[in-house]
């Protein structure tokens, strides 16, 4: 399945890009699976996801937990805990 990935703040800086569209294999079913799959893609992803437990995710602009399923997702975003206000 084809998914647009968006990265923000220090995750964007470590990966070296703010977005990309990737063809994700079918066995990557959840957000947690996607983190694992990306981490194995290269050292920049491993660096970005090394503190994976603090990273938050959103599917199509909605906050989700790690067990959220990717089926039907157009855009998945990864970002640190938010610090606005």
């Amino acid at each position: 399945m084809t998914i647009t990935l968006r990265y923000f703040a220090w995750i964007r800086e470590r990966i070296g890009r703010s977005e990309e569209t990737l063809d994700v294999p079918a066995e990557v079913a959840t957000v947690a699976d996607l983190v694992g799959w990306l981490t194995a893609k290269g050292p920049e992803y491993a660096a970005a996801f090394e503190r994976a437990h603090v990273i938050r995710a959103a599917i199509d602009h909605t906050h989700v937990q790690r067990d959220a399923r990717l089926a039907g997702a157009r855009e998945v975003a990864f970002f640190p805990p938010v610090t606005g206000g």
Binding site: F8, A9, A58, H63, A77, F79, P80, V82, T83, G84, G85
Partner: peptide, 14 residues
């Protein structure tokens, strides 16, 4: 409104 936006709205400060 402030408490909610601080923990939910996707802003990041550097």
């Amino acid at each position: 409104l402030m408490d909610y936006l601080k923990t939910r709205a996707p802003f990041w400060k550097k």
